[in-house]
Amino acid sequence: MRLLVFGSTGQVARELKRACPQEWETHFLSREEADLSDPEACASAVCDVQPDVVINAAAYTAVDRAEEEEQLATLINGAAPASIAKACADLGIPLLHVSTDYVFDGSGETAFSPDHDTAPLGAYGRSKLAGEKAIAQAGGNWLVLRTSWVFSAHGNNFVKTMLRLGKERESLGVVDDQVGGPTSAASIAAALLTCAKSMVAGKTGGIYHFAGTPDVSWAGFAEAIMDRAGLDCRVDKITTADYPTPARRPANSRLDCSAIERDFGISRPDWRNDLDAVLMELNL
């Protein structure tokens, strides 16, 4: 199996490197090797490598900065995936692409199904939705994996921020009126590889949701992090209004993941177990 991955240092890409079978021929492209702000270069990379399957694990992820850089975010999250998808479709190569719960407006308390109407609240969500639509329009065999609240021992994420602040402060205010499913990059990587194998064997993709369980608020997630890391920092529950940000966040990030379990046999991972694994990797 020859696998091409866009991204090499991001959370999901790093876990893909770990999880790929040793007998696979893998090509992980860094920003220097395939800059997503140059869509044509990304398409050329697919043609050059001639892989059996492609995973796009790279993206513009600065949610707040995207409000000022929407054109750049859309180039990276929309135009680049479009070019990659067209190249894959032309060559008959399955494409798997990581997307986000931010394509929804976060209304209600019911978990969003893959076919629920999209309505992004901000520039980041709009840019990711543009990529999803472009991939579908390109044809071929593709899979969009929407996920939420990604964490790992690497890069910038909520878990690492809480651990840093938990060591520095006696208390910390964390939003309690946004609810979702924290998802480890390791679990996302495992899900992508399972889907990739099936798609190379001929299975058809589509839009799927994959997120950790149980659903929890950011404050509840923070409490679990402090408790499992043995930190004495108190978590004070606040509202979204108490912590304004340039980009609006969805209040409801719950994702209905039943389709991926039905079609690929992939069940929702318990984020508490994955959190323990991350803490162990960080020697905590």
Rank of each mutant, 00 (worst) to 15 (best):
M226K: 02
R262H: 06
W218A: 01
A259H: 01
P246G: 12
R248T: 12
A251S: 13
S258P: 00
C257T: 06
Y243V: 14
W218G: 00
D242G: 14
W218H: 05
S217K: 02
D232F: 10
L255H: 04
D236C: 13
P250I: 05
A259E: 14
A224G: 04
A224N: 06
A222G: 03
D227A: 14
R234W: 04
Y243A: 15
T240E: 10
R228F: 05
R248I: 08
D232I: 08
E223H: 09
T240D: 05
E261K: 01
A222M: 00
W218D: 01
I260K: 03
S258Q: 02
N252T: 08
E261F: 00
S258I: 00
A251M: 09
R248E: 11
A259V: 05
A259T: 08
R249G: 06
P244N: 10
T240C: 10
P246W: 12
R248H: 05
A222H: 00
S253G: 11
Y243N: 07
M226W: 01
S258L: 07
T239S: 15
A251Q: 14
D242Q: 14
A222V: 01
S253A: 15
T245W: 11
A224K: 09
R249H: 07
C257H: 06
A222Q: 00
I238L: 15
T240R: 10
L231Y: 01
Y243E: 09
A241L: 11
L231M: 08
P246K: 12
P246F: 12
I260L: 07
R254Q: 13
